[in-house]
């Protein structure tokens, strides 16, 4: 986010900030937020139900850990997330390749898929609840629905942009349809598939939390929802913070490295933001 030096406006900040390094400034930002929050609690003068302090939240966090609730909820959430992500991505890849390679399948399915995509995944949750009740089926289905579309779209883009010359080259070396798929189409589509997976993983994480609020009795989303319902607002905030940290960790330690690995190794480039 650093602008070219010449673009920086001569906006003056208090001197202590300017002396700090970049990381330190970032930490300072978070610290200011926390301190302002803590200091504002007595000033606002509301009950912890309306406005818990950081200290309350920390106590709730320790309590949730000690009672073993948080680890169980985390495991439940991650289990649902992994299943939904895997199944949705698999379906997205299969459909993406089929649609990308067969014109008639593309013509037949694209209007329906466009319409289904317009019915956003959250709108499906009520009917999933009617069909499958409150529980893992509803949540996983919603996740599959969320992950399916970005993976499908980006796989399709990858398949359609697989270089025709490489297809010709391997066919001239004696490759049949399946070998073309394995040797050229799938590897060409891989950066797209990974971009789709990364986008889908982001959407699905939000979807997971929402689905758990509505249709689960465990999990991070449920923790956020239930905390407020049972007048333990600090728990809700613990849930929100855990959610934020969890996503940052997933993105940093799983999604980015996977993306980097394929792209760098083959000298390919893909612009994640353009492929949305």
């Amino acid at each position: 986010m650093t602008p070219p030096a010449a673009l920086a406006l001569p906006l003056r900040l208090p001197r202590p900030f300017r002396r700090l390094g970049r990381t330190a400034r970032g930490i300072a930002g978070i610290a200011i937020l926390l301190v302002a929050w803590q200091v504002s609690v007595p000033l606002v003068g509301l009950s912890p139900y309306f406005y818990p302090s950081p200290a309350d939240v920390f106590r709730a966090f320790v309590d949730l850990l000690r009672k073993g609730i948080l680890p169980v909820y985390l495991a439940d959430s991650m289990g649902r997330y992994a299943i939904g992500l895997f199944a949705g991505a698999t379906l997205g890849i299969v459909f993406g390749v089929a649609i990308g390679m067969h014109r008639r399948i593309a013509l037949a399915l694209s209007p329906l898929l466009k319409f289904l995509f317009a019915i956003v995944e959250v709108a499906w949750i009520p009917i999933f609840v009617v069909w499958f009740g409150y529980g893992i089926e509803t949540i996983v289905l919603a996740l599959i629905y969320i992950v399916f579309f970005p993976v499908l779209y980006n796989t399709l883009l990858g398949v359609r942009t697989a270089p025709q010359i490489l297809v010709n080259a391997v066919r001239s070396l004696g490759a049949g349809r399946l070998a073309v798929l394995r040797l050229v189409i799938l590897p060409s589509a891989l950066p797209g598939i990974i971009t789709g997976l990364r986008l889908g993983a982001g959407f699905a994480f939000r979807g997971l939390v929402f689905a758990e609020m509505v249709a689960a009795k465990t999990g991070i989303g449920y923790l956020i929802f239930d905390g407020a319902q049972s007048h333990d607002t600090a728990r809700t905030i613990v849930g929100m913070i855990v959610m934020g940290l969890l996503w940052l960790a997933i993105d940093q330690f799983y999604l980015r490295p996977i993306e980097r690995a394929t792209i760098q190794r083959w000298g390919l480039t893909v612009d994640a933001e353009d492929r949305r």
Binding site: L166, N168, A169
Partner: peptide
């Protein structure tokens, strides 16, 4: 067998 101007080697 075909040799292409653009080489057409599989990058992966």
């Amino acid at each position: 067998g075909v040799v292409f101007q653009e080489y057409a080697l599989l990058p992966w």
